[in-house]
């Protein structure tokens, strides 16, 4: 990814407070929105995410059946009008479970990314700003986490904490911390050498203020891109964890656990694997498209291609 987005976001809000700060911010948002609309990828990605989010929020309205209760007289029915995506080995409506599963899968993605950023970004900021011993220690710590393959580490953490969606979320979030920390650190290293930071320091601004007011806002763009992309990764990791039995506990309908339960029936009832698989793909596509689109918008060199 290219992260020289500095020029694209107005670096103006620096020395002193603007009288028309509000207006400048509004104009900048309008500019981004205009660019956003021009990026087909971003629009498609955002549309998919918004639709899935609506499905997740409105799940009980879309599918009124309880996704956890077995209907033993109705097992392994192929897709039909009464059960759009068929029924599973316990007679439950697969469509209803996927709809309810959106809550878990998207919720996991959102919270895992939140955990990664909340811990990763400050670590990166600190490590980048105080490059000496503090930075080295923090980054070596991050390196040691990244030395493990992400999914493997997530499995190790989740199996230590025990199965359950909450633990899966923590595991996925933890594994994502180093990525954000490195990214944030890179941005700090780049930005802190820029004139307006020196100017702020010269005018007596403290470290915290410089980090908060000058460095973070200008380094935000690549972090947003990374957040969208890692949300896609989080969905996949949750699916992987659930597939090995470390994610959602039954009868919770997470997409990954549906894949896991459906996989033995692949020849007998392929719809048990196909539809959760499609849902995972769709959500992943959505986030990746959104991430790529945002990168194009933020990166002037990519713009107009």
């Amino acid at each position: 990814m290219a992260f020289s987005i500095h020029a694209s976001i107005d670096p103006a809000p620096t020395i002193g407070a603007h009288a028309n700060d509000e207006r400048a911010r509004f104009n900048r948002l309008r500019k981004i929105a205009r660019q956003f609309r021009r990026s087909k990828q971003a629009v498609i990605g955002l549309t998919i995410i918004v639709i899935l989010a609506i499905v997740a929020v409105a799940a009980p309205l879309i599918s009124r059946v309880d996704p956890g209760v077995p209907v033993l007289g109705n097992v392994l029915q192929s897709p039909s009008w009464s059960a759009l995506f068929g029924t599973d080995e316990l007679g439950r409506d697969v469509f209803g479970r996927i709809v309810h599963g959106a809550r878990i899968s998207l919720g996991v993605a959102a919270l895992a990314v939140a955990i990664s950023t909340v811990f990763g970004v400050p670590i990166g900021l600190i490590a980048g700003y105080w490059e000496g011993i503090v930075g080295s220690v923090l980054m070596r710590l991050m390196d040691s986490i990244q030395a493990f393959p992400a999914v493997l580490l997530a499995i190790a953490i989740a199996s230590t904490l025990g199965p359950g969606i909450m633990n899966a979320m923590i595991a996925i979030g933890f594994v994502g911390i180093p990525g954000f920390a490195r990214l944030a650190r890179g941005e700090v290293l780049r930005i802190k050498a820029v004139d307006y930071v020196s100017a702020a320091r010269a005018s007596g601004a403290g470290n915290a203020r410089i980090l908060r007011q000058h460095i973070l806002p200008n380094g935000l763009a690549p972090l947003i891109v990374a957040a969208a992309t890692s949300a896609a990764g989080a969905i996949l990791t949750e699916a992987a964890l659930s597939f090995v039995g470390l994610g959602a506990t039954p009868p919770q309908p997470s997409w990954g656990s549906m894949l896991q339960a459906g996989y033995p029936f692949i020849t007998l009832a392929p719809w048990l694997s196909i539809f959760p698989g499609l849902a995972i793909s769709l959500a992943t596509f959505g986030f990746i498209f959104l991430g790529d689109g945002l990168r194009d918008i933020f990166d002037p060199r990519m713009r107009g291609r």
Partner: peptide, 28 residues
């Protein structure tokens, strides 16, 4: 964590829940 145990557990859960023995499944 075995497929058949998982399947049985969900049915047993539904049957026990219906009389008021509320179960939380813990897959280990």
């Amino acid at each position: 964590n075995r497929p058949t145990d998982n399947q049985i557990a969900q049915i047993v859960k539904a049957q026990l829940d219906s009389i008021g023995i509320r179960t939380t499944i813990d897959v280990l």
